[in-house]
Simulated scan of single mutants.
Amino acid sequence: MKVVVDRSKCTGLGICESLAPEFFEIDDSGDLIQLKEGVTADELAAVEESVQGCPTEALRIVS
């Protein structure tokens, strides 16, 4: 599985960073930096929480 960011929807609020900091970081200019793409079973819960918590629906998990 991997996490995908729709950059046209992302506004850089940083909720994903607070929920899964090993995957997401908001830089000083407010842009999202995706640190990792692949999601392991151990990481899935945090990434799912980030996907669900994204108010702009910019994140999704794909197989």
Rank of each mutant, 00 (worst) to 15 (best):
I61Y: 09
S63A: 15
E17Q: 14
D27H: 07
E49P: 00
T56W: 12
R60I: 03
D28V: 02
C16T: 11
E43G: 04
I33L: 11
C16L: 07
S50T: 08
E49V: 01
G12F: 00
K2E: 15
E43H: 00
S50Q: 06
L44P: 10
F24H: 10
S29C: 05
E49G: 02
P55I: 12
P21K: 09
S29G: 08
A20K: 01
S63W: 08
T56P: 00
D42F: 10
A20H: 08
T40F: 06
G14W: 00
G53V: 11
Q34N: 03
C10K: 03
P55V: 13
V62L: 13
R60C: 09
R60S: 15
L13H: 09
A45H: 07
A46N: 14
G38C: 03
I33F: 03
A46R: 06
T56Q: 15
C16P: 11
D42E: 15
S50V: 11
E22M: 10
L19I: 14
R60L: 13
E17P: 01
E48P: 02
K2H: 13
T40C: 06
F23A: 07
F23H: 00
L44S: 00
A46V: 06
S50M: 05
G12Q: 04
P55E: 02
C16F: 01
E37F: 02
M1I: 11
G14Q: 07
